[in-house]
């Protein structure tokens, strides 16, 4: 059986790539995708922990499902906000969206 640490390393990699994307991407859609990648890392983490640490308890599965649901809701709201920006400005590049600064 594949050891737990492999899954955790993969999850950490996914999560780190996600963080890099959030910080480095200029396009709001790109940032949104990177956010989803972060959450996927989290879900992989939880599922692996559940399988190896306590497969008899459902709490791990429940946690994973709730993170799924939240990720979906977040993506929906995020896309809606991006579309509302795009309609008004015609751009989804985060740096161009800068009316607000001091």
């Amino acid at each position: 059986m594949v050891p737990l640490s492999w899954y955790l390393v993969l999850a950490a990699l996914l999560f780190s790539i996600g963080i890099y994307g959030v910080l480095a991407r200029a396009n709001a859609i790109g940032i949104l995708m990177a956010l989803e990648l972060m959450l996927n890392g989290v879900i992989l983490n939880i599922v692996a922990f559940w399988r190896y640490r306590g497969p008899t308890q459902v709490s791990g599965q429940m946690f994973a499902i709730i993170v799924f649901a939240v990720a979906a809701a977040e993506a929906a709201v995020g896309l809606a906000l991006i579309i509302s920006i795009y309609r008004r400005r015609g751009t989804v590049v985060a740096e161009d969206v800068s009316l607000l600064k001091w």
Partner: peptide, 22 residues
Amino acid sequence: HAAEAGLKYFLFGAATSGLLVY
């Protein structure tokens, strides 16, 4: 301004809540 505020709030909030849930 409001649309931009919503997007900024979302991007910061989603990123930090991703860190939290990790």
